[in-house]
């Protein structure tokens, strides 16, 4: 399964091994792990809760992976995203892309993550010393996703 949304933690070695299994044509795997920080916008964060839209979240990430595969020479990819209660140091999200060569793997991995941040329906609520608050979307994330629209496709 390319996309999983789950409360449980994940093992990146096992995920990468599963992505590569039986595909000797793969020459490169690029991966990204997003983890829970203990500070955000100047306030300490003791914990966070992640909410999603079951069904749409998985579909939107599948569509993002399809776009990456259409754009770069990518063999396969997988995304695991946790929901529920998380604490600083916890893993939140994992993206891995396998390709024949590293250029496509690096680019597609960053593309998938940038699009996930701005398009996949997840919402973070964090616990700070002054109470719980919903995290606001960042314009820097919008800008990171938008730059892929103008970049020329690379088939490396």
């Amino acid at each position: 399964m390319r996309v999983r949304v789950q409360t449980a933690d994940f093992d990146i070695s096992a995920e990468i091994a599963a992505l590569r299994a039986g595909k000797p044509g793969i020459g490169a795997v690029a991966s990204f792990i997003g983890v829970c920080r203990d500070i955000n916008d100047g306030d300490s964060v003791a914990a966070m809760t992640l909410e999603h839209y079951p069904g749409m979240t998985e579909r939107s990430i599948e569509a993002i992976i399809d776009q990456a595969i259409a754009r770069w020479q990518v063999t396969d990819a997988r995304v695991v995203h946790r929901v529920g209660d998380l604490r600083p140091l916890d893993q939140i999200v994992f993206v891995a892309v396998a390709a024949e060569h590293r250029g496509a793997a690096f680019a597609a991995c960053e593309f998938i993550m940038d699009y996930l941040k701005t398009q996949a329906p997840f919402w973070k609520r964090e616990q700070t010393p002054t109470g719980a608050r919903w995290v606001d979307a960042r314009t820097t994330d919008e800008a990171a996703a938008a730059r892929w629209a103008s970049d020329a496709p690379t088939g490396r």
């Binding site: 997003g34 839209y53 993550m113 941040k117 329906p121 997840f122 995290v135 979307a137």
Partner: peptide, 25 residues
């Protein structure tokens, strides 16, 4: 479960979701 615009048609058979900008990852 697909992002919509103001013009997207809706009927009683549809599921429509309202939400703030997303903040995952």
């Amino acid at each position: 479960q697909d992002m919509a615009t103001a013009d997207t048609p809706v009927t009683d058979a549809d599921e429509v979701a309202f939400f703030p900008p997303v903040t995952g990852g």
